[in-house]
Nucleic acid binder design. Sequence first.
DNA 1: ATGAAAGCGCTAACAT
DNA 2: ATGTTAGCGCTTTCAT
Lengths: 337, 337
Amino acid sequence: MVSIKDIAKQAGMSPSTVSRVVNGKKYVNPAKRDKILKLIEETGYVPNNAARSMVLRRSFTVGIVVPDTFNMFQRQLFSIIERHLYSFGYHTLFFFVKFDGSSEEEFLNRVRSEKLDGIIMLHEIQGNRFYDYITRTKLPIVTATFSRSQISSIHVNEEQASFDGVSHLINLGHRKINMITGREFSFGRQRTEGFFHALESMGIDRDETRVVFVKHYTAEFGMYGMRELLLRNKDFSAIFAATDELAIGAIRVLRDEGLRVPEDVSVVGFDDIEISDFYLPRLTTIRQPLDEIGGQAALILHRHICGANGAIAELLLPYKLIIRESTAIPISGKSWI
Amino acid sequence: MVSIKDIAKQAGMSPSTVSRVVNGKKYVNPAKRDKILKLIEETGYVPNNAARSMVLRRSFTVGIVVPDTFNMFQRQLFSIIERHLYSFGYHTLFFFVKFDGSSEEEFLNRVRSEKLDGIIMLHEIQGNRFYDYITRTKLPIVTATFSRSQISSIHVNEEQASFDGVSHLINLGHRKINMITGREFSFGRQRTEGFFHALESMGIDRDETRVVFVKHYTAEFGMYGMRELLLRNKDFSAIFAATDELAIGAIRVLRDEGLRVPEDVSVVGFDDIEISDFYLPRLTTIRQPLDEIGGQAALILHRHICGANGAIAELLLPYKLIIRESTAIPISGKSWI
DNA sequence: ATGAAAGCGCTAACAT
DNA sequence: ATGTTAGCGCTTTCAT
């Protein structure tokens, strides 16, 4: 393995000079610079990151914390973040965590041993130990898709977005709307609130029996949720799902029961994951600005790491209601139940 | 940041002893060991990875090479591999690469500067420079979902699997079968061959006009492929798609054209990605053993890294035809064209 | 069983 | 503008 000393020796100069060239520092004689550059080219010299990390006391690595049950939206998001981070010169270490308490400790240890430059959280964690650690060490951090006080965050107004999604159903003429959602993350709770508020704005009382809470935001659990809703035997003409995956599972069950979407039941999802535009029917949903979220998360974290503009930022990004095929005017008079 | 010296000082011992304890080496007085362990616990000491990497000349990091256009199957796969690698004590660095030549150089540089312990390839790369480098440095490597001589690999028999998928259609009574596939990776070419062979085994001549090649294996390109097939104006009763995503895009177009699946056209996919069981109709497909592939890739790489059982292995894993709703007996006499 | 000492590859302060 | 030097935190001979 060729090291900086080898280059220095071959060039007849000191390692410092080579270091300066490698790091693009000033104060280097152009002729010498060229010679060194040529040597680097020839030998295929690449600086050893571990050594740099040690002396610089930073790792050029950012951790991304993802729930180990990540859904498709998160999966798309973290790939995007990875790329943006890379464009800023960072490596990305993924922390797939489940927070059943015991793994929090393990997670903390991993974070500490890595000497991370910063962290992007896509996953809300419960305990305070982690956040205490962050505060104590002043480790740069940003949260994406949710917010937390004292920490920079990038997200959409979940409740408002949800409100708009439900309003779309209401404007179509739907009044009996059920929801499939979850309690686990704050986005789930916020989307649920938006749902109720939209209904309330139409003078429709809050009816908890129209909402089913499931454990995960996946298609599988969307099926469970839909079955439960069907079991409750309440008349309804529309479903609002807290995520597209939930919506897909719900539609799956609806179809299995012989109900057509949107003819018999309208369905609105949330996130606008890749598949939503290809599903049958194409899913009406609320789009989160994926690229923007990823790009801003990386950018803001980078700023924090550089110390420039270190102010805590809360970035509220615009969402967009995407109307496709899964919603329609309810067939009045038709009661399928 | 508490270092090994701090622990040593507080314990009244030398760093060497602490190091021995941390690394579980023998020849340490149990009493001293306990004392050190307690101190580590109290101070929250965690070894600095960069320092270890430097002296050990390894990084405890494995690179996973993924095409930057990764599809859902690959996305599922690399998450799984990440977890398995972690269970062996490795970090994972993702290399999202596109191989338009120039990025090969950059990729190589990244690999070199990382001092990776090993590499798992989910992406076939063309040039030889990379493989030359691997051979020269004896960097442990395994490929997953494809094979290459002189390198351990884990994959299924793509051609045979494809043969079975098409045979399923043939057994149902289909004779006019079109295919949507791609040329970019060998799995695409192998699946195409399996398609032709199944047909040939029934005495059906190889008809290239029944096959459309698209650029990427995504739903979007499945739509393009299907439209092209429709344009060719050939009678057909079934579609074999080289990936589930392609199949989903194809079904999307079929439905948009008023064709029902499976009543008018049967469709078979490949991979069995998450969504396939929730699609409308549920997709008949060939399942790749995702967990097994991921687990074995990590395990075999780990063995190579440890130097134990360093023999090159080619692991052929079983696939499984999953018959769901997208395939049916063709409606004889009915010609929709 | 334990400690002293050297050194991994690099950067930065300091000296020139 | 360039070289010398110290040191980042750790592991590992080599002594004892």
